[in-house]
């Protein structure tokens, strides 16, 4: 159930907000839930916009040509990023962080990293689209890309996972692979974005349904494996409310 400003949301208002099928799907999940989701109208609008951009950014990253590489072999465009000794990328101090994120999408073949970092890139790209380059550069002056390590404070919640009543398009989910071959720890699990309609985007595996994701991970298990890969029931979400506060302060 959705509450706006402390009251159950008006059906007409929700209909108005459901401008496209994705927004409609998100609102339906929220409205039909046992849980009460409390928003201001602006917060709900912002969450819908950002979730839409997250999915768009995942589609675009999938088409960008960025390769899957383990941290030891990670690569980046040195015009925008410094490749660090741990395999992470730190944005150069003399470039625009927004342009550096955009470059990953423009020159994807010059980049290679693991699945978690790809998800962080998606969140930054979505925020770049929502906030615009100038504001984004002010908000995120020191981007460090390396899984959930050293993630910006304003985005730290995506690095944390917790159980939720509902799963929504744009959520971060995780397929865990408990019996992974110890020689290939990069397949210990796949970080994914919920793309709606039962599909997930995972860097290195593309956009697939849960069954296909599990099938791929199961091929990466050790020989005497007994446990299948599976989708964890937890999610990672940015703090939409805080980000909305920042957004509306400027608009």
């Amino acid at each position: 159930m959705i509450h706006i400003d402390g009251k159950p949301a008006d059906a007409e208002l929700l209909k108005e907000l459901s401008k496209d099928s994705l927004e409609k799907d998100i609102i339906n999940i929220l409205a039909n839930s046992q849980k009460i989701y409390t928003y201001s109208i602006n917060e709900l609008k912002f969450e819908l916009i950002l979730r839409k951009e997250i999915i768009e950014a995942a589609h675009d990253l999938n088409r960008s040509g960025i390769s899957f590489r383990v941290f030891r072999d990670s690569k980046c465009n040195r015009e925008y990023w410094d490749r660090m000794d741990d395999g992470g990328f730190a944005v150069k101090s003399d470039v625009s962080p927004g342009e550096a994120i955009s470059d990953i999408y423009k020159n994807g073949s010059r980049y290679g990293t693991e699945c978690a970092t790809a998800i962080v890139i998606i969140y930054y790209k979505a925020l770049l689209e929502v906030f615009g380059k100038e504001r984004f550069d002010q908000l995120f002056p020191n981007i460090y890309l390396m899984n959930w390590h050293l993630i910006d404070n304003k985005l730290k919640e995506v690095g944390l996972t917790h159980k939720e009543t509902d799963y929504l398009p744009g959520d971060r989910r995780y397929f865990i692979n408990p019996d992974v071959d110890p020689i290939t720890p990069q397949w210990q699990g796949e970080n994914v974005i919920d793309m709606n309609h039962g599909l997930y985007y995972g860097h290195g595996v593309g956009i697939r349904n849960a069954e296909a994701m599990i099938k791929i991970l199961n091929t990466k298990r050790k020989k005497d494996a007994v446990e299948s890969a599976y989708l964890l029931d937890s999610v990672g979400r940015p703090n939409f409310r805080n980000l909305a506060d920042i957004y509306y302060r400027e608009h």
């Binding site: 693991e114 699945c115 978690a116 899984n147 959930w148 390590h149 993630i151 730290k156 690095g159 944390l160 996972t161 995780y174 865990i176 408990p178 720890p185 210990q188 699990g189 970080n191 964890l232 990672g236």
Partner: peptide, 9 residues
């Protein structure tokens, strides 16, 4: 089973 691939903490 948690790891740095799954979460920052």
């Amino acid at each position: 089973g948690e790891s740095l691939n799954l979460t920052s903490e």
